[in-house]
Computed example of a mutant assay.
Amino acid sequence: MTEQCSPCKQLHIFEYSNNVKIIIHIDSLALGNAIGGTRMLPYDSVESAIQDVKKLSSAMSLKAAIHGLNQGGGKCVIFNPEKLHFNEIAPLYTSALNQLAGSFIAANDMGISIKMINDIRHLSPFLISSNQLIDDPSYFTALGVFHCIQYITKNHLDTTIPNIKIQGLGRSGAPLCKMLLDSGFKVSAYDIKVSHVEQFKKHPNFSALDETNWFSLPCDIFAPCASGNVITNSNVHLINSKFVCGTANNPCENMAVINTLHSHHIQFIPDFVSNGGGLIYAAGTYHQLSRKEIIDKIKNIPKLISKLSCSSSNMYVNALSIANEKISSFVNES
């Protein structure tokens, strides 16, 4: 099933046996073919999966535009209520990609490892791994946030060793934590999986947090690195940090939360700015850029923060305006 949501937006639902649905949302093709990750999470319903994929694909459009990538935004989620192994779903997944004939280029995301994507690279030319075996884009997402935190520390904080609080020590949170600890930062962190925290406990600059105190504990920079919507209307008043800058997509529940952070003088680095490293790597790899070219581009992410923080207005609003203007200008020209 294909649903034309607007002149630019497309929702594709590929239905298979065992109630498996491959759901792909293309948010924009204005700047090029859409690119984005694929999630396989235990969604409660098809409706919640569709809601997630639409919100995530919109973030991909903004991310591609703000970072100057010649790509549109898209996302895929796999609705898998029978909990089939990805190996069973892979032929269906790659068939869906092939039917879209390149309008969507897929990477991995939550629930799908980089090994899974590399193992099926021969089944579709529309995977970011189709030209070569690739590394996990999550590492490069973490790398971009690391450079942002370094920039914030140097230019906006009155301490050389700030305390960074990380929520989530998974595929992007763990490498971010390691980079920070290796560079002398103090890190406190919480993860619902105790095993994720254990690997860092012996480091003298690391503090493990528990579920009773992690959210409201004071810090200089709060780095959400798990699922989205962690900062909500009901808990935003508990945030006790100077900056919010992490790897998570859509960490704020809605625009009202972002405005509240701004009114409380908490700088929210737009997620589609800070976490752009993964998409930069995915697009660069697909277009066969060198690793050095990709990393150099990721190292330039803090320049966007400098540009966006020149005025006292809401940084997120500024970034949103710049990204949407880029997308609109291409739409109007075409």
Rank of each mutant, 00 (worst) to 15 (best):
F222P: 00
G173I: 06
F140R: 01
D136V: 07
P175I: 13
S216P: 05
S195V: 13
S172R: 05
D191V: 07
L180W: 06
L181E: 11
L176G: 12
I164L: 03
C219Y: 01
A208P: 01
C177S: 15
I152T: 11
N155V: 08
N163R: 11
V194P: 02
T153H: 06
L180M: 11
F126T: 04
P175N: 12
L133N: 14
F215Y: 15
P218G: 14
L127S: 11
V194Q: 14
I221D: 09
C148H: 00
M179Y: 14
V194Y: 07
N163D: 12
M179L: 15
A208C: 12
T141H: 00
D135V: 03
D136H: 08
I166L: 08
I128R: 02
C148E: 05
L180Y: 04
L181Y: 05
N163Y: 11
F146Q: 03
T159P: 04
L133H: 06
S129D: 06
L157M: 07
R171Q: 14
T141W: 00
C177H: 06
D220K: 04
H156M: 11
F185W: 09
R171F: 10
C219P: 02
Q167P: 02
K193I: 11
K154P: 01
H196Y: 09
N131K: 14
F206D: 07
F215H: 12
S216A: 15
E211K: 12
L217C: 14
K178H: 14
L180V: 13
P125V: 14
